[in-house]
Simulated scan of single mutants.
Amino acid sequence: MIKKEWILQKALEQFNERGYSEVGVRELARMLEISPGNLSYHFSKKEDILIALLEQFSARNSSFYEHYLTLSPTNAHFLELMEKIFNSQYEYRGVYIGNQYVRTELQSQDRFDYQSIATKRASTFQKIFQGLDAAGQLRVNGEDIAFLVAHITLFGRFWISEATLFTKFPDKNKTIRHYLFLLAKQLSLFATEQGKKSIEEFSRGMS
């Protein structure tokens, strides 16, 4: 029996390898060795597959944020959270929201409320940075927190686009380490001595 999860997994592989706009439904059915009718039984059109993958991606990331909020607030834990998020973005890069074809697709329908998700994520980052300040990991005021939220939002939204600008298949671990290093350097500008030690602890584990 054809499983929806199997279809989604194979579709994501194709979107990652070739790009969302380059993969058609009939072609996907041939690759899966099923009839277009069998595929449409589960997903009536390609956009349905896209929405299902984005929901999967969003739920996965939400679990990472929820887990972080159960931990003691340290810069190392924050960078561990971002490492998980970056890995997730890499694995879903073919349907990631930074993809221009995906953005165009979403703008034409109301089935995935990215604006609400983005607002919720920004609120969560604000809470995270406030917590790091209260724990003595960062020294930040309201303006600093607003800057860090804007920075992490921009950074998180577009790093994968830059990473794949010249090659579709950058080395995953090397690429993620590079962007985590840049993020750690930015964070260190606001870190206390205790917070800098926490960043160094994370960096040692990453190398």
Rank of each mutant, 00 (worst) to 15 (best):
M1D: 13
E5T: 12
E5M: 07
E5L: 06
I7H: 02
I7W: 02
A11C: 06
E13G: 04
E13T: 04
E13V: 00
E13A: 11
Q14E: 15
Q14A: 15
F15C: 13
F15N: 11
E22C: 11
G24E: 14
V25F: 13
L28H: 10
A29E: 07
A29D: 04
R30A: 10
R30S: 13
M31D: 13
L32F: 01
E33H: 02
I34H: 03
S35V: 02
P36L: 08
P36D: 11
L39I: 05
Y41W: 08
Y41M: 06
Y41V: 01
H42A: 11
H42C: 08
S44W: 08
K45W: 00
K46R: 14
E47K: 08
I49A: 13
I49N: 11
I51V: 15
A52M: 05
A52Y: 07
A52F: 07
L54G: 11
L54C: 10
F57R: 15
F57I: 00
N61G: 11
S63N: 05
F64G: 08
F64N: 10
H67P: 03
Y68C: 00
L69W: 05
L71D: 03
P73E: 02
T74W: 05
T74N: 07
F78C: 09
L79W: 03
L79P: 08
E80L: 00
E80V: 02
L81Y: 03
M82L: 05
E83F: 03
K84R: 15
K84N: 12
I85D: 08
Q89Y: 01
Y90M: 14
Y90H: 14
Y90V: 07
V95H: 09
V95L: 04
N99V: 04
Q100A: 13
Q100L: 10
Y101D: 14
T104R: 09
Q109K: 12
Q109P: 01
R111S: 13
Q115N: 14
S116T: 13
S116C: 01
I117P: 00
K120I: 07
S123V: 02
Q126C: 05
K127E: 15
I128D: 02
F129E: 09
Q130T: 06
A135D: 11
A135Y: 04
R139Y: 10
R139C: 14
V140P: 08
G142V: 02
G142K: 11
E143C: 01
I145G: 01
A146H: 08
A146T: 13
F147H: 10
F147I: 07
L148E: 11
V149R: 06
A150H: 09
H151Y: 15
H151G: 08
I152W: 00
F155T: 13
G156L: 08
A163F: 05
T164C: 13
F166R: 04
P170G: 13
D171H: 14
K172G: 04
I176S: 02
R177S: 15
H178V: 02
Y179V: 12
Y179H: 13
L180H: 06
L180E: 04
F181P: 03
F181G: 08
L182P: 00
L182T: 04
L183W: 00
L183H: 05
K185P: 01
K185N: 13
S188C: 11
L189C: 12
F190N: 09
F190T: 10
T192N: 03
G195Y: 03
K196I: 06
K197I: 03
K197G: 14
K197F: 01
K197C: 12
S198K: 01
E200Q: 12
E200T: 08
E201Y: 06
F202K: 06
F202Q: 11
G205E: 04
